[in-house]
Design a protein around this nucleic acid. Sequence first.
DNA 1: ATGGTCGTTCAACGA
Length: 261
Amino acid sequence: MRIATWNVNSIRSRMDRVEAWVQRSGVDVLAIQETKCREDQFPFDRFEALGYEVAHHGLSQWNGVAIASRVGLDDVSRGFPGMPHWGEPAAEEARAIGATCNGVRLWSLYVPNGRHLTDPHMQYKLAWLEQLRVQTSAWAAGGEPFALMGDWNIAPHDEDVWSMEYYLDKSHVSPPERAAFQGVLDAGVTDVVRPHTEPGTFTYWDYQRLAFQKRRGMRIDFILASQALADRVRGAAIDREERKGTGASDHAPVVIEVADA
DNA sequence: ATGGTCGTTCAACGA
């Protein structure tokens, strides 16, 4: 079974590329982030024509997560228990959706950006990750195979950014963010992609300042798997080619190959 | 050429 995660940065403006990539990659399940649309705007018909069921969670033009699967899509959850809200007044955001596909519990997650070190959004990000840690601990205790997939907006290691000097006073690399990410790992999941990729492999390149052409990227998209699932991972890759050309998302798809149970 | 962006929705914001 081939499973992937991809921040598409608007499903409506990206659907032609997404469709081409789905067919080219042969993924069985795709976790999508930043659909940037409401439920009534999501192109369900395009996925159904490709043979995929889709569960989507979209509340506005921001955020939005989905899971597309051609190997079953059951027990869909929108949000996770205790997930913090944002804004004044505080409102739910579409940042998490879970579904069981072929016996594996999969989550598509869009972790809050944090914006700046002193921005209130950073506290929201850290609180969101703390609650995800709590939930991950509970899920891991069950022993079932599951994965947390998505855009974490954190570069856990120095080698995960093109320049630590550039990011020193910016979000995504700060000690509190890295500690929050490590907290989720310590709750019972492991990065199953890193062992299959070279150091300095990135998943995201800013649209600005020719970042992709200058190889100025970050590794912020991850697939974290429970032990039961990690034991079945046979390979992984980051499809950097998909970042090329006109109409590309600023994120590349991340793919794992999983053996049958 | 010594800087170079995209989405949302339509002035400004988010990333």
